[in-house]
């Protein structure tokens, strides 16, 4: 497993799209700090970019990568290897490569320009979102054999988590605004890692007070270390579940 992972990482870190992605993250992060100064505003800019770009690039790239590697996966599968270890290697390879891209493009400049809790949380959230969307990409790619449909599904997932989900939540809140929905909203955020990640970072900024405005439940949960830990665990579950499901699916998949 380690050998295939190493091989895939070796392939990916020479991939020009991944290099471009890293450069883009780096430039954008530096740009925000140059334009907005040191404070929360630059962090918010980087956060916005992260929430939009990281899931998109990660999910689309990983889906394409799976389809491009399909024949190679078959070749590997013809070797005396377990299926689990082959897809696991692909997942790990993507996780490590994209993780490195995040650390180099986002983590390094953030930590140099604005060391502290909020940067740390932002980097961790970016990493977790990366893992989550790699998992989702593999899930889609293993599920749908047809490349075009798979790509469509990957894009849809991105739009869903970044836009549609929030729209539905807003609609729901509009219709149930007369009810005490504070607690429900808290649970709803668990259903979308992008929202959860955004709130985890926002809670470390001045915007926290504004969020707290919406009700004690929310603020209490996220400002306590236990809430933070719970959010982290939920994000971790989000990164492992799709990957685990795709492994299960892959085990009995006809290739």
């Amino acid at each position: 497993m380690i050998n295939i992972t190493k091989f895939i990482i070796n392939d990916l870190i020479k991939n020009w799209i991944l290099l471009l992605y890293t450069a883009l993250l780096l430039l954008a992060t530096l740009g925000f700090f140059l334009l907005e100064g040191q404070g929360d505003k630059a962090i918010l800019g980087v956060l916005n970019l992260t929430l939009l770009l990281v899931p998109m690039i990660t999910v689309i790239f990983s889906t394409i990568y799976y389809y491009n590697m399909y024949e190679f996966l078959i070749l590997l599968m013809a070797q005396p290897l377990r299926r689990r270890s082959i897809l696991g290697s692909l997942f790990l390879g993507l996780v490590v490569s994209f993780g490195l891209a995040i650390l180099a493009g986002l983590g390094l400049p953030l930590w140099l320009l604005h060391p502290g809790g909020v940067s740390l949380v932002l980097i961790v959230v970016a990493l977790l979102l990366t893992f989550i969307f790699i998992g989702l990409a593999l899930f889609v790619a293993v599920w749908l054999k047809d490349k075009a449909r798979g790509m469509g599904m990957a894009l849809f997932l991105w739009v869903y988590f970044v836009l549609i989900f929030d729209g539905l939540v807003l609609l729901m809140m509009y219709n149930f605004s007369d009810y005490p929905i504070g607690k429900i909203v808290l649970f709803i955020t668990f259903l979308n890692p992008v929202d959860l990640g955004r709130i985890m970072v926002l809670m470390q900024t001045e915007a926290a007070a504004l969020m707290g405005y919406s009700g004690a439940v929310f603020r209490q949960f996220f400002s306590e270390w236990r809430g933070m830990l719970a959010s982290l665990l939920i994000m971790l579950a989000w990164s492992l579940c799709p990957a685990w499901l795709s492994l299960r699916m892959f085990r009995v998949k006809d290739l």
Binding site: F7, I8, N10, D11, L12, K14, N15, N68, M69, Y70, E71, F72, I74, L75, A78, Q79, P80, L81, R82, R83
Partner: peptide, 20 residues
Amino acid sequence: SHYRKEIGYMPQMSRFPANM
């Protein structure tokens, strides 16, 4: 998976990781 040690497979179409 063990039995595949004894099988050499040459697929119809080959695609390998681009950068290796």
